[in-house]
């Protein structure tokens, strides 16, 4: 570590005061391994990273690592930039400026995926009365989107044998897929699968009639 530092300092001193060319009579000793020069920031392309608050106001964290230096950004509109010869700087930027500079990029972000849950009558692939309205809302959302794809995952409660529930959960998912295809969505854009009784919302013993577990989870993207 110390040798590297000394080396770096030496390199810097040499860079600032280049030594006169050595006289021919006194050959210089051969340098076997010169220390790594410090990073050339002067040539670096300017970069900037800005953390944004999410729609619900939550702000996450980005850890920016440059030349072994770490900078943690975890506040809304906190930014880290490099420009010219300076190292990473952390500053708080005004929101309008960020929104303006990145406007074309932010506009191109896809719509957030939206999730729906539909519930079923015990032992069947028939929707409960309440879920029929939710199905209509889901279909509307899919129609509204420009290039939608839909994930449909079916589930059951623990009544009946597991292999029978695997089939029933898939049947529920495929029923929803059929509704989507009827609505004009290409079958290739809908992925239907069944998880049987493996992922209950409410943990129960085997053989328990639990309406909240008889469901299909849909992600419209």
């Amino acid at each position: 570590m110390e040798t590297v530092l000394v080396g770096a300092v030496l390199a810097l001193i040499l860079a600032l005061n280049p030594p006169p060319p050595p006289p021919r009579a006194a050959p210089q000793p051969v340098v076997v391994e010169p220390p790594k020069p410090p990073p050339k920031r002067a040539n670096a392309v300017p970069e900037i990273v800005v953390v944004l608050p999410s729609a619900d106001g939550h702000v996450g964290t980005v850890v920016v690592e440059r030349d072994g230096e770490k900078v943690v950004l975890n506040q809304a509109y906190a930014s880290s930039r490099i420009a010219g010869t300076s190292g990473p700087q952390v500053t708080q930027l005004p929101e309008p400026q960020v929104r303006k500079v990145f406007a074309p990029t932010l506009t191109a972000l896809p719509e957030r995926p939206l999730n729906f849950q539909l519930y079923f009558v015990r032992g069947t692939d028939a929707l409960t009365a309440d879920s029929k309205g939710e199905l209509a809302r889901m279909l509307e959302e899919v129609s509204r989107r420009k290039a939608p794809d839909v994930l449909v995952v079916g589930h059951t409660d623990t009544v009946g044998k597991p292999d029978r529930n695997d089939k029933l959960s898939l049947q529920r998912a495929q029923r929803v897929k059929a509704d989507l295809v009827r609505k004009g969505i290409a079958a290739g854009r809908v992925q239907a699968s069944g998880r049987g009784e493996r992922e209950p919302i409410v943990q129960t013993a085997d053989g328990v009639d639990e309406p909240r577990n008889r469901r299909v989870e849909i992600s419209v993207r």
Partner: peptide, 21 residues
């Protein structure tokens, strides 16, 4: 990754620019 940095993401929304605006 950018030419000069690596960003580790721990759940968030963010923007990055490489080069002049």
């Amino acid at each position: 990754r950018t030419p000069a940095s690596v960003m580790g993401v721990r759940g968030t929304e963010f923007v990055v620019r490489v080069g002049e605006a």
